[in-house]
Write a protein that binds this DNA or RNA. Sequence first.
DNA 1: GTGGCTGCAAAACCTTTGCACACAA
DNA 2: TTGTGTGCAAAGGTTTTGCAGCCAC
Lengths: 138, 138
Amino acid sequence: MNDDILKNTALKTTKSRLAILRILGKSSEPMTADDIYSLAVKEVNLSLSTTYRTLGTLAEKGILLKNMSQDGKTYYQINNRQHKHHLVCTLCNETVPIEDCPLTNLEENLIQKTGFVITGHSLEFSGICPRCTNNMRD
Amino acid sequence: MNDDILKNTALKTTKSRLAILRILGKSSEPMTADDIYSLAVKEVNLSLSTTYRTLGTLAEKGILLKNMSQDGKTYYQINNRQHKHHLVCTLCNETVPIEDCPLTNLEENLIQKTGFVITGHSLEFSGICPRCTNNMRD
DNA sequence: GTGGCTGCAAAACCTTTGCACACAA
DNA sequence: TTGTGTGCAAAGGTTTTGCAGCCAC
């Protein structure tokens, strides 16, 4: 399955790539290169640089979505055409997914106004989660 | 004026801080620490680390908005309560401001659903500008 | 005078890259 | 066999930090 994904893009099938796709496939949340690497080394021999290179290649091919978060790290997720945005607690990093993406209409609008070809968007909400709010009272 | 801003927040009035506020006040677009530093050194003696420290302090006090862009750099702008989002060309970095922020309604919704205190959001569109699209044809 | 502010240099942090070797096709 | 993929180590860019001295209050 992941094997097919690679074949369809003229990428060679390697243990590292399969492991990375497997890990991202299981995750319901976007992950950093380091997150992915930490899990992947348990399964196969690979280096952090390979992780970065693989993630970059897969994102270029459109297999992954790559997003810079407000925390300064880059997050990767499978591009399954039903992308999600998130609300992140600035204190404890608790993350809540947001189901609807309200931006589709706006994109149409922008295309007409600006003549840009729009290739993506990033949206992230910051806040403080209920637990941290309570902790502040202590 | 900028002097008042500082006094109101128990921050000392220094040449560096005034210069940074002056520069950001004149700019209609968000700027990076390095952008700001490059302009500020022409007016006053200051270091890049002071620039970072000042920007961080002012953002903490709510005087500036601080945003990590998809290009991996942090952008600062005056928080004048009428914030803007942007559409950025991934090839030439041309930037088009977006007038309306469509997220206010969604935020209300999120507060109720998640119990978070929402402190901000970041939104950025990526695309390719008409000029770069044309260049690709050459 | 005092505590906040600053410069400098060094470090931290995440990410990219050069090179030689390994492996999938 | 061939060229893509990889490990290692080193460098890259941006941002942070420790410490000693300086300056606004």
